[in-house]
Amino acid sequence: MMLLFDIALVAGLLTLAVHVVREPDERSAIIAFLAFGLLLGLAWIRLAAPDVALTEIAIGGGGTGILLLRAEAAVRGRGKHEESVTRPGKLAIAVGCAAISAGLGLAVLSFASPAPTLAPAAAEGLSATGLGNPVTAVLLAYRALDTLLEKVVVLLALIGVWSLAPDAAWGGVPAVRSGEIPQPLAYLARILPPFGVVIGVYMFWVGADAPGGTFQAGTVLAAMWLLVMLAGLRSPPETAGLPLRLALAGGPILFLAIAFLGFAFADGFLAYPKALAKPLILAIEAALTLSVAAALAMLVAGPARRAPTR
């Protein structure tokens, strides 16, 4: 029975993807991409990966969606079109992509039969980290270096986005609200955030033992902050302002501090003393959630537009 649902889901995904590619109008292509992101979340549920489903819908569907919608609004009519492709060119590219997909399919089908997996190793190590959710254990204990670097990647992207501001406005306030604000949006911005924050904190807290975690919670919190800014209830912060910078850098700095403490109290960098493993990880997760929320919101808000008040 579930097979039927899977086939329908895969068919839906592929048709939506083809529709996104072939759709001449930019805006509807992006809206189709939004739907594609949400369907993808279902696919991840079918692949028994709830953590990833949450991340995909929150960041892949929601975050990227609003990013692309704002981009489309800014670029409509003004964006210059690059080299258009001749018909035979498109055909050649299509054939090439088909060949790559076929090769990929062949590789996927020819995987070794007793699938090699690190699940048992992850399960053994779980007790040392004191966590219940294996994915969070991998993210924050076994491969903590990846998560640390990935957090720096997000910050670097933000610094890169900020560097695109005009010299005069650098460090100033990004333009989030555009034009007058419709009343229902203001109403929603007053009602929804409390619920959003509660859900975000809950997702971060439950992340240690059940699906949830830093990035998903951070995205929800970022969404709420964006909603408030879009509705004009709160003006976006100054990018060079101390509070924002501390919020952004706070997460990774705490992470690094605890990591360096690992030299003294545990047996090496990014190692946690056995007794304190869970509280330390939760502290890191809390700080990271705040930083992720601030970083994602600022990434969507974009570079500064108005000059800073020195």
Binding site: G96, C97, G103
Partner: peptide, 22 residues
Amino acid sequence: RRWPAAGLGLIALAILLGGALM
């Protein structure tokens, strides 16, 4: 150095190398 030509080059190289290796 036009975008589609470079993309096609990328795809062709992937197929060439993948095919040869396989």
